[in-house]
Design a protein around this nucleic acid. Structure first.
Lengths: 206, 206, 206, 206
DNA sequence: GATGAATGAGCTTTCATTCAT
DNA sequence: AATGAATGAAAGCTCATTCAT
């Protein structure tokens, strides 16, 4: 069931190369502006301007401003999801401890890179929290992570694994986002990953 | 009582009871609107409307829209801070495990009650993250929590306690907020508190 | 025929000393603000504030903001007029040349002193131009100046004296105001008075 | 072409004929309103209304209300300046007396035509006095007038010519503006020009 | 009389969106 | 298809004035 079918779906599916390029330009412009100046600065006219496209063209491919943002979020989620899934698959045979640490390390990188989209939009515009939240969880964390944990099921002492996954996901993402938000006082990447991994491992196995 | 003196400080101090009521109405209206519909919906005219007050009156006591929000945040932080500090002091002699669980339980309540202000505003309007962030952490968590942990220092195995406090704070708050945001799938309050306490205790002592 | 009878007349004629003081405070405050920050800054609330009087009281003595300004202009005109008349009377027996020079000298001083009221208000608020214009001309220049010129009628070659007076008045006031407005490039008080006197004397006698 | 580049410069340069017409409409509407009702009456909404244009269009071409007025002043100064310069050049070979009279006659016409802009704006809004003042004096009076006077240097008895020019300029403009402001009592155009010319000629040559 | 709280029309300006070319 | 001119609801805010105490 494809989710984005109704209000946020692009007006026309671009079929020519130029059209595709236009759409790409708009999304890139929107992404750049939001990351550099925040959501409020991302007016449609400004986006069109930066994209080098007329405002009329912009509205030929996107029915509304929200549609642009939705596309942006979806794009980020898909890319990040794909990368994360590949990453996880490569780590399927690794030890629980190593796996957890590397996954957290990976999440830190991912959220630093795409995170501005997630964090900015999710925080500034509540409407998009659901979109990104659902997609995040469902599409690129849950399934594969679940598989990974199952591989180490006997090491894991908690009974309800799915609940633990929910708890862990938010423990981890909460800590990472806080770390990225605040210019953290006495912590560097390595230390953070170490500590959070510690917490997760202990939570799962002790 | 030293910060935000200029741009956010009230325009005039109400001297009659009627005026006090007006100020209270405005803050209540703003709080209600923000909690129910978000920051974007909280236009000054709407706030005045809901408060049953003219727009002129609103601007007689608040120099700007942001000042209203700042007052809201400050108020929430002060109340929540006071309650939390009292709560912590009463638990000074309790065991580490009990203390952690009860504190997390308490934080869950606090953030459910005042948290919409923290979470909504902090997320939607980055400007306010500083205010709430600083006040939150520094004023009512850090000092007292630190004292509590020190009382159980010998049970705690991590070396750098302050770093651990940073990690824990964001692990806990991240998880709680996520739980409150998503109407969590297979979790209730008790379970959440239990799991997060578990994680924290294990992180500290194993 | 008293001019200021209708829309600009004070609401009540103050009969007690305190009331008189209040009115004086308001006028002084208004004058100060207008001179220092311009007409736009002179809001009624600000005036009341500076006057140390409640806004309610202000409206007890003046029916509108314009009434305050009108009173201000009238006051300035009366004072300046009185001083000028006295000054002129003392110079009745002086030679035409000396008299003209000293009058111009005197006008320079007067307009430097009260002029901010005349110039600011007259320029920023066209409604008041008539008031001040009429009062200026009629009440303190025309009659006495006329008498002075008559004393030297035989030296004066122009036929239509009244027309000449009109021309001279505006030549003189125009030059003085321009001098006071621009921070004049290569001119000081003395030089200005000298040159303008020259022009007037020559105009009248050559 | 170097000053007012930022805050007053047009927002976008109109590229279609339709847009040019819009800009023209806005300027015309603003000019009309200011001339007929003064600066205070010239609200942006009213200007847009009279121009038959939406408020949005107005702000597409002018970044602020002041920018409109600035454009108005600049336009008037440029046109008036050009006309006056041409006029003066044609009179270069004329006698001092004729020249002065014709120039004053010309100034009377110019200030009657464009003058409402100069006088109203210059008087009501001090900010614009600088713009119009500088442009007026420097660009279209000073240079050419100076040349004219130099051609008759031997007839002129005053020593410091430039100072005399300053005095004369303000004598003349002051008198003309006063004549145009007050609907002058016993004077017509011809008489005014005659008298003021007289004064100037005598001032210069006697 | 005096106070100051309350009012609200109206101001400048923005920006998502539509429409004529 | 593309352009960009045009739209107008709606935002934040001011200030002369009224009214309850």
């Amino acid at each position: 069931m494809k989710a984005n079918q109704n209000q946020f779906s692009p007006r026309k599916v671009p079929q020519q190369e130029r059209a595709l390029f236009t759409v790409e330009s708009i999304l890139t412009a929107a992404r750049t502006i939001i990351q550099q100046k925040g959501y409020e600065a991302a007016t449609t006219n400004h986006i069109a301007d930066v994209a080098g496209v007329s405002i009329g063209s912009l509205y030929q491919y996107f029915p509304s401003k929200e549609a642009i943002v939705a596309a942006l979020v979806e794009d980020a989620v898909l890319r990040a999801g794909e990368r994360t899934r590949k990453f996880l698959i490569e780590r399927m045979n690794v030890s629980l401890e190593t796996g957890v640490r590397e996954i957290i390390q990976h999440l830190l990188e991912i959220r630093r890179e795409y995170g501005l989209i997630f964090r900015r939009l999710a925080r500034e515009v509540p409407r998009f929290r659901n979109i990104s939240g659902q997609l995040t969880t469902e599409k690129y964390l849950y399934n594969t992570v679940h598989t990974f944990y199952l591989q180490h099921r006997e090491e894991i002492l908690v009974e309800d694994l799915e609940m633990a996954m929910f708890v862990i996901e938010h423990l981890v993402v909460g800590a990472i986002d806080a770390y990225l938000d605040n210019d953290a006082p006495r912590l560097d990447d390595e230390e953070l990953v170490q500590q959070v991994s510690n917490a997760v491992i202990k939570y799962l196995t002790k």
